[in-house]
Design a protein around this nucleic acid. Structure first.
Lengths: 229, 229
DNA sequence: TTTTGCAGAGACGACGATATTTTTAGCTGG
DNA sequence: CCAGCTAAAAATATCGTCGTCTCTGCAAAA
């Protein structure tokens, strides 16, 4: 038995590539997505591309205008603020449920991922450091959230995360992982783990919400520099 | 200026029609969605249909298996419970924010929609009664939720609502709107409005969560009768 | 039980039809 | 006579259908 259908069709790979390119800014906000350009970039024809774009519309990364094709969804300070606020509130809710519902295995996985995040040492370039830090950072937060034990809440959390990635990418590009900055973050995470293990729902929620909102001022600066309001 | 580009292309209308048919149960859970059947049912060719199906995959109402086409997403008691729980928790969060953030206009719209819901009189058939009650009921809850002032939280709320509609449809079919049942509901809603206007976050959240969970036992019974576990 | 062949379904690209955008020519008012 | 506006026409892009190739699933035979 094949473990998993390892062959993605062209629509799926085009979807992933396009999503990546939009998040990484290769296609800017509001940019028109012309079929002929996409065809040559991704080496497929219109059929699979339209499928990929349809899914991105559902993800709210692309908007479709009937008979006029597709554009990258706009970005704005208003959306930045709302999406980070929504995420912070939702993550607070999920954290509360996780503290109420999480079992021993959950505590173990939180501890383990916190440890992996704190002990980042073997790196070559600053870029590698940022990449692996970000990956472990996400894993850490996902481990915490998993305790809520609700696939649908986690699915919703994922959806908002994908929507925020475009803004988050700007933040990652601005961020320099100096030893000092890294240590500040480490302390934030340690404090979070502490209150979680104390099962202090109120303080944990407040810490989590504040923690999630920290990138907003930096991203605001970047957007303003790009004359996006 | 054209009033509004009111012409949906075939992919969009196929999406709406298919979604409706899945929610209403014309295509049952796990049923294979064969292209040739869909073509004749909706009078379009494979292109637009694949676009519609792609969006439904993003909505989680359909699952795609590479090289093997599409199926209606499965239904299960586990999903029923999780999705209703997730919705109840989320609605509780949104209600808390609405109470904290809602202004006078919000209070007014809650009051107005509660009134419209309570005063359902002019109806012809029982079906009409159920339809218009359900419509006003949704409007009532949406009015409450709108106070949170966060487009993204409302969008997430909408997404979960669309996912639950298949289960909710089963509930609506079972429900008989007797005067007694109607009055029970009316009292629930009146109590909700009361605690909202008292700005009692804790009690309001509890009432709202309980209110949202009421259909679960009925739907559980229906699913078990259909041998869905 | 494993293998092989066949029928049917899905994935993809190309073409023709339809809609939109841009260009250009003509017209009107100042 | 020129600037600005309107309308027609050309160019460009999207939308939808169809044909072809490939893959899957089933059944029959070894």
């Amino acid at each position: 038995m094949e473990p998993s259908h390892a062959r993605p069709n062209l629509a799926i790979s085009a979807y992933q590539a396009l999503k990546r390119d939009i998040i990484r800014g290769h296609f800017g906000a509001d940019e028109k997505l012309v079929m002929s350009r996409l065809k040559e970039r991704y080496g497929t024809s219109t059929g699979p591309l339209r499928e990929a774009l349809s899914q991105l519309v559902a993800d709210r990364l692309v908007v479709a205008i009937s008979q006029r094709g597709y554009r990258v969804a706009p970005m704005s300070l208003a959306e930045l603020n709302d999406i980070y606020d929504a995420r912070a509130q939702l993550e607070g809710l999920i954290l509360r449920l996780a503290i109420e519902r999480g079992d021993d295995a959950w505590e173990a996985s939180v501890l383990a991922s916190a440890h992996r995040l704190a002990k980042i040492t073997e790196v070559n370039t600053p870029d590698d450091l940022l990449d692996s830090w970000d990956q472990r950072h996400q894993a850490f937060h996902t481990a915490i959230a998993s305790g809520c034990n609700s696939p649908h809440l986690l699915q919703v959390r994922d959806g908002l995360f994908h929507q925020v990635e475009r803004y988050r990418h700007l933040w990652l590009q601005e961020t320099v992982m100096s030893p000092a900055a890294l240590d500040t973050k480490r302390q934030e995470h340690a404090a979070l783990v502490d209150v979680i293990f104390e099962r202090d729902v109120e303080r944990a929620g407040q810490l989590m919400r504040d923690h999630l909102m920290t990138p907003v001022p930096i991203i605001t600066r970047v957007l303003k520099a790009r004359h996006i309001r």
